[in-house]
């Protein structure tokens, strides 16, 4: 060990001071993941707040990790959660099992299920990592109303699927404003 060794050490420190810092200040500063990052799921809504999920279980079928459980239910005139006949009565995703592959998103026929960039799915309790419908449903945007309620945009579920956003704009949502939760929300 030579006399200059301590100086060499300080030299390393000194030289690093002028290089890019790799340290992440998590959790004080949260890193923004790539736009297409596969984070926590979200169950989207139509512009009037009705749920897009029809409880078809195709996501559960597509899931290679058997992380999703869905049970359908029947909409009635008094209690309507989605346009059409059927809605997701029970919806659970087990994040202990989910591998974030996104096959469920591809399987979804109504774009009800998308993924957000939210990546903080860790907990100290296994039970808390089974997310239910309440945890997964997208927040209500302005103009949306918490279901159950009647179909506000049209008489038919086709109105919702074919031109839901236009109908919503026709009812007063200004152009440019987000009318339905979905991809744009996921990116944001």
């Amino acid at each position: 060990m030579g006399m200059t060794d301590p100086l060499k050490g300080f030299g390393v420190t000194l030289s690093k001071m002028f290089k890019t810092v790799l340290t992440e200040e998590y959790p004080e500063v949260k890193k923004i993941p790539a736009p297409r990052f596969h984070g926590k799921h979200q169950l989207n809504r139509h512009p009037d707040g009705l749920e897009k999920c029809v409880g078809c279980e195709l996501c559960a079928w597509a899931c290679p990790a058997d992380a999703i459980f869905v049970e359908g239910g029947t909409n009635t005139d008094d209690e309507r959660y989605s346009p059409g006949e059927r809605y997701g009565f029970d919806y659970q995703i087990n994040y202990l099992r989910c591998i974030g592959c996104g096959l469920c998103i591809e399987a979804c026929p109504t774009r009800a299920l998308t993924m957000t960039n939210e990546y903080e799915t860790a907990d100290d309790n296994r039970q808390n990592l089974i997310y239910t419908k309440e945890d997964l449903l997208a927040p209500l945007l302005p103009g949306m109303e918490q279901p159950p309620h009647d179909m506000r945009l049209g008489d038919d579920e086709q109105d919702y699927y074919v031109n839901g956003p236009e109908l919503a704009r026709g009812q007063g949502v200004p152009a440019g404003a987000t009318v339905e939760t979905g991809d744009e929300e996921a990116v944001r």
Binding site: F69, E71, N75, T76, D90, N94, Q127
Partner: peptide, 18 residues
């Protein structure tokens, strides 16, 4: 159009085998 009688579903959150 009535809802199916879900009754006591019995699986609740614990339905998925954590």
């Amino acid at each position: 159009h009535g809802p199916p009688a879900h009754g006591s579903n019995g699986n609740g959150q614990a339905g998925i085998d954590g």
